[in-house]
Computed example of a mutant assay.
Amino acid sequence: MELSARRQPPTVRLRRLAAELRRLRTEADLTREEVSEQTSINPATLYRIETARVRPQRRTLMAMLDTYGITDEDQRSELIALSQQATQLGWLQTYESELPELYTTYISFETEARSVHNYESLFVPGLLQTQDYARAVIKAGLPLATEEDIHARIEARIRRQESLRKKDPIRLWTIVDEAVLHRQVGSTKVTAEQLEVLAEAATQPHITLQVIPFDSGAHAGMPGSFVIMDFPNPADPALVYIDSMAGDLFLEHEADVRRFTTTFEHLQATALDPTSSIKAIEAQIHKIKEKGGAG
């Protein structure tokens, strides 16, 4: 039995389907090898289905449910519907062929998240970046990228921000190191405008922003940036995302999520409170304008 021919980046629904199929196989007391013997589905294919790498075709899914003894029609219909919805990418589908697979995977998760907790040590979080700031960050970070690649990434980054403006917006809690406020990205005008947008965003009821001042010394976030995403459906466990020079990494084991959640809590305690953080941003904007660089 074959999988859906088109490879799609994992989505929240595909991840939920994979978890449910793992659970059903475990409850049926079957190994992947035993399921393979009974269904003729390759064990490697079963592994990819159970780890949300691919979506099973309908006949593959039906064979798995038959083997697991799932006869309840409502349950079968629910899983079939979940499978059909698993590859719905919305606006992201426009950029699917232009963006790296792991980046589209991240965006698909972020789009459906209930809350995002983001720590950044070097630059303004993507959800709060202006277009000019984003261009400067992307061009510097990808020196070999074509203008088309840069344009696609900028557009995708700006489209991501719609999650903050929808009727039921993502709840964003972001913590940045003070270095983010002082680093010039693009021109001084671009940097000042970005900080003004950051200060304004921090006043929104669904956005919390904190700054870790230099005088706080060493802190728990110094090893690097990370994102923790929570989802509305209890069946979708929290997820940690790390973007580094070594590549993108997703962590979903409970121990890993707990470790990064604890780290974020330490950063919350170390950082300035939200009101003081806005004042720190405004003070830096004033310094830039005093030097005449924002004109």
Rank of each mutant, 00 (worst) to 15 (best):
S108F: 03
D215N: 14
I80S: 11
L172T: 08
R259A: 15
Y68F: 15
V240W: 01
V180T: 02
D236V: 04
D177C: 05
R157L: 05
V176P: 01
E2Q: 14
I175R: 05
L92P: 02
T111V: 13
E50Q: 15
S4G: 12
L172C: 11
Y106V: 04
T31W: 10
Q131F: 01
I80A: 09
Q38G: 13
E34L: 11
A283C: 00
L267Y: 03
E34V: 01
I288D: 03
D256N: 13
T262I: 10
R258W: 07
G293W: 05
T208H: 10
D132C: 02
D236G: 08
E147D: 15
I242V: 14
Q194N: 09
A255W: 10
S276N: 15
I242Q: 01
P169D: 07
L144A: 09
R165P: 03
Q131E: 15
I281D: 00
P223N: 07
I107W: 04
L79A: 10
A113M: 07
A5C: 06
P237R: 08
Y47W: 15
D248F: 01
F264P: 09
S4F: 12
Q184N: 05
Q8Y: 06
E96W: 01
E27Q: 12
W91K: 10
L24G: 08
T26R: 12
Y68K: 08
V124L: 06
V257N: 04
Q284I: 02
V54W: 00
S121Q: 05
L92Q: 03
Y47Q: 15
I138L: 08
L209T: 12
F214A: 14
H286Q: 13
E290V: 00
A136R: 00
S97N: 05
D177F: 05
D215K: 13
E162V: 08
A152Y: 00
E112Y: 00
R53H: 12
S163A: 15
L102K: 00
I228R: 10
A19I: 04
A86C: 12
E96S: 12
R114I: 03
F123M: 12
G141E: 09
T262Y: 08
R13T: 01
T94P: 01
Q38D: 13
R22K: 14
Q38K: 15
R7N: 07
T270I: 03
A136C: 05
I228P: 02
L21S: 13
I278A: 04
Q161N: 04
R25Y: 03
Q284T: 04
A18E: 08
L142E: 06
S36E: 07
T39H: 11
R7D: 06
H253I: 05
R258H: 14
K289P: 06
V54L: 09
